[in-house]
Amino acid sequence: MATDYVIAKQVSKHFGHQQVLNQIDLTLPAGMIYGLIGPSGAGKTTLIKSILGMEAVDSGTVKVMDTVMPNRAVMAQVGYMAQSDALYETLTARENLTLFGQLMSVPKIKLAQMIDYAAGLVDLTSQLDKRVSGYSGGMKRRLSLAIALIQDPQLLILDEPTVGIDPELRQQIWTELNKLKDTGKSMLVTTHVMDEAERCDYLMLIRHGIALAEGTPAALKQQYAVDTIEQVFLKAGRMQDANDGNR
């Protein structure tokens, strides 16, 4: 069993003339929370979709669970939470969870138990039989997270998981993510909330499709000689702009 859940090598991708990803290397071992930070349009979501195998890459390779992506079967081992809440609003939360559980091949006898587990984790147990159309933005976000957890995957890919969630619940969710990490699961999380970035074990800064810097939060702060990740981000960005200007 390989200890690296995700190995991406020299991944490049362009849409038209725009280079969205430029030779990105990413390795995600077991038991780690890996943060992708960067401004909107930096290429975070494209990188995630390339890892999932939904987007074809121009060059480079992506391996998930030792399998070259894109590969349909491997998708069952990855819990995915999209940036926008892709939920069936006319169905109840339980029906949404059931549907995705079935699609993820959760055995019938385990399904009810998994729904209770996932709903409990995001504090939606009492609202399970309400239709999603009556949910608030935060509740929808939590349901999306519960759906990502429905098959108890080893690898979770979470695109902006805490947008629209109140601080109290955000705290709870991070506690849960850390618990999951302790059981050997790995998470690839995108965010542009800097205090969340501090909670990751390892960070990659992406801007204009280029991996500007990577390392543990502490190492990054030391490297750029600043106090916060926010300042690391700003400083790295200015250096990139300066380099572009020199060209």
């Binding site: 926008s84 892709a86 939920l87 699609l103």
Partner: peptide, 14 residues
């Protein structure tokens, strides 16, 4: 448009 199709395709469904 709501993204559920893309979400469906992030599962192993054919």
């Amino acid at each position: 448009t709501t993204g559920t199709l893309s979400r469906l395709l992030a599962t192993p469904i054919r």
